[in-house]
């Protein structure tokens, strides 16, 4: 049921969920997860995971309109969920549902 190309790790699932209704940048995702009471995603795993999600086609990155940071010249990137990302989230939810509803076959009948 859960196709291998739609597979999500727990961190990736939380990141995708954070992007469901609006585009966000990295720090915003982290704050959103933290303020909602979830297990905090560290810097060291957030950005590599975002890159992996982008490579799989679950999110799309776009440059923000803010000016580059004054010390490093680094620009901000916003991430937006794609149709495939939504599908992956949906597949995960369906998996949870079907696990909850699963019944053992009656024995000895």
């Amino acid at each position: 049921m859960n196709a291998p190309e739609l597979h999500l790790t727990p961190n990736q699932e939380v990141i995708l969920a954070a992007l469901r209704f609006r585009r966000r940048y990295g720090l915003e995702i982290m704050t959103a997860v933290e303020k909602s009471g979830g297990k905090q995603i560290g810097f060291n795993s957030l950005y590599p995971n975002l890159k992996k999600l982008e490579k799989k086609g679950f999110v799309k990155a776009e440059w923000g309109n803010e000016l580059p940071e004054e010390h490093t010249g680094a620009r901000r990137k916003y991430y937006r969920i794609t149709g495939m990302g939504e599908q992956a989230l949906e597949a995960k939810h369906q998996l949870l549902e079907s696990v909850a509803h699963w019944m053992p076959a009656p024995e000895g009948v």
């Binding site: 990295g26 982290m30 810097f43 950005y47 890159k51 010390h71 680094a74 620009r75 901000r76 990137k77």
Partner: peptide
Amino acid sequence: QDYQDWLRDIVGS
């Protein structure tokens, strides 16, 4: 190109 937003957020935080 790929990872500058990471650095920006490190500095921003």
